[in-house]
Design a protein around this nucleic acid. Structure first.
Lengths: 225, 225
DNA sequence: AGGTCTTTGTGAACGTGCGCACAAAGTCGC
DNA sequence: GCGACTTTGTGCGCACGTTCACAAAGACCT
């Protein structure tokens, strides 16, 4: 059983997390008119080692040609299919603060198979405004949106509202949430939550900065010659 | 040698990545007037298992009391110290598009020991504008900023400008970069780069959505009773 | 057609991270 | 003061991810 040619049923999470980067690198190459790449070249363009790239790609089948490399268009199509980008997915952004508005105006991910179908806010003073060509709707409209096939919810509210909004998304049937609010969200097992937090990122950078400063400042310098 | 009480010289990366979350949970608890927590409670507030939390905390020393738990303020201070947040770090944001402006206006990370000291853009039409109370400066001012002790650079430019900006930051002596542009940056080994990309996050969510849809739609449903 | 050369795909070794389960250590009640 | 109880800190086993090194497989030249 599972005589599946691509040996699916389990692409490692670490690999999935890198596939978008490979896809971007491939798009860039295609835009330059390049039709074929070696694992070495594609790995360099993606910021990984070639062995890791080859092992990642091997999880979705054997699409390279030994002695030549990978066909750019074919591989891009294959990764897109694997990531589920062949069908458009509808996205709602909840929370029309600075970040929510910036994301609404960001055109970068519209091109990748994602479509912003709704902007939502709970402030009556904001509801009805037009942001990036879309009219802001009220929180109560979430149920109707979900019924229309909403796929992903993006939460850009303050932390104290995030769990409430999250609960309403889950109740409405949304199974994928991208959370920009600085808090942990409680969700049922079948719901995927990914978190993006720039404060966290800055703190991680600060840690490494301090580590480097300490290492060069004391204790690890060479013995005087 | 290394009879260091805290047994430092190597906190795992995975642990470092979670410390900010613990810190945020502790701040929240402190705000509620709670002075002591068990690993079980703090883990729940941070979205991890208690065993993982205890192992993480053990890497920075023994600050808990058996039978009681952790002192909220003490532990928060200890994590802050470990992350290097005791000294303020200055941050520059380069790229005054929608995202750059949103980050500049975001007050969330000012409270955490980070200070935005400069906003930068290469468009002469934008230089001189005031965003979030700060005057936008030209790209050429980066060297001067770095000389004043700039610690972290945040890149919010389009992808095609990111490498150029990155190079100037590195030349100016910045060792920590947070990259929001959808591209890989080439930097020397001594420079840390962290990348945040919402398109990537959406694609990862899309993958899991598709996987769930396939699993429930075909092949994995139960045998008819 | 055969040999050489390039590049993929992968088996094996290695390191890291995670969770369990428990001993050590301290508190609280009496 | 002592015993029971609670909670931390950690040793161990397992699974996952990464890297190395090489055999298999095809292209290209002659």
């Amino acid at each position: 059983m599972t005589a599946d040619p691509a040996a699916r049923r389990g692409i490692p999470d670490a690999t999935v997390a890198r596939l978008p980067e490979y896809l971007r690198a491939l798009s860039s190459l295609a835009g330059q008119g390049i039709g074929s790449v070696s694992s070495e070249e594609l790995a360099a363009a993606s910021g990984v080692r070639s062995a890791k790239l080859r092992k990642d790609l091997s999880h979705l089948g054997s699409y390279g040609v030994r002695g030549v490399g990978y066909d750019v268009d074919l591989l891009a199509a294959e990764i897109s299919r694997e990531l589920g980008l062949t069908q458009d997915r509808s996205v709602a952004i909840i929370g029309m603060g600075n970040l929510g508005r910036a994301l609404a105006a960001y055109s970068g991910f519209v091109t990748k198979g994602f479509r912003i179908v709704a902007l939502v806010d709970d402030d009556p003073a904001v509801v009805g405004d037009t942001v990036a060509g879309i009219t802001v709707r009220a929180l109560d409209d979430l149920d109707r949106l979900a019924a229309e096939g909403l796929s992903i919810g993006v939460i850009t509210t303050p932390a104290h509202s995030a769990q409430l909004v999250c609960d309403r998304l889950v109740t409405a049937g949304v199974h994928a949430i991208l959370n920009f609010a600085p808090c942990v969200l409680a969700v049922p097992d079948e719901v995927d939550v990914r978190k993006v937090d720039l404060s966290t990122e800055l703190q991680i950078l600060a840690f490494h900065e301090q580590r480097k400063a300490l290492a060069s400042g004391l204790g690890l310098e060479e013995v005087a010659p």
